[in-house]
């Protein structure tokens, strides 16, 4: 009896090998399970929370942190930042730079943001621009300033001098 139980076990193991060689399961095993063995040494070496956030959130998170750094130099009490849409960044030739949506910006950096088309757009007192490949914050003092920036966002001019993505 034990021999037959053992035979069932061996047959099961053999069937498992066949199972994991079926195309979708092979792919699943490689991409979701076995990839773990190559990821884990690096991840164990990098347990710092900030590193893990940057790895997971990618460019959007890095961007939010950059914006936070820029605002800290301007000493505004309640900065509300006008952010361009992604097509502006792409037109400026920096597609790898990811604009976080306002709610995500607030999560990552505690900064309030607005994007063109939102009803609160005229509450913005700062705006984000890309000038010669540099990310810059400009102060917005009037409705006119905001309209000018919105025009710039709507008709972005390609910037051929771009080299660096961040200021």
């Amino acid at each position: 009896m034990q021999q037959r139980t053992l035979a069932t076990l061996i047959a099961t193991a053999f069937l498992l090998i066949i199972f994991f060689n079926l195309k979708p399961y092979r792919y699943w095993l490689d991409s979701r399970i076995l990839s773990f063995t190559t990821e884990i040494p690096e991840q164990i070496d990098n347990l710092d929370l900030e590193y893990r956030r940057e790895t997971r959130y990618g460019n959007g998170y890095v961007m939010a942190k950059e914006i936070l750094k820029l605002t800290s130099t301007l000493h505004y009490k309640n900065p509300i930042i006008l952010l361009p849409r992604q097509n502006y960044v792409e037109a400026k030739g920096i597609p790898q730079l990811v604009m976080p949506e306002p709610i995500v910006l607030y999560l990552f950096s505690r900064l309030q943001g607005v994007v063109p088309g939102e009803k609160d757009v005229y509450k913005a007192n700062m705006g984000l621009k890309i000038i010669k490949g540099q990310l810059e914050l400009v102060e917005l003092h009037s409705k006119n300033d905001i309209d000018n920036l919105l025009k710039d966002y709507a008709n972005p001019q390609p910037d051929n001098l771009l080299k660096n993505t961040r200021s």
């Binding site: 949506e101 306002p102 607030y106 939102e118 609160d120």
Partner: peptide
């Protein structure tokens, strides 16, 4: 304060 944000996009 999340609810003080403009939440039209979500």
């Amino acid at each position: 304060s999340v609810f003080s944000l403009n939440l039209e996009t979500t």
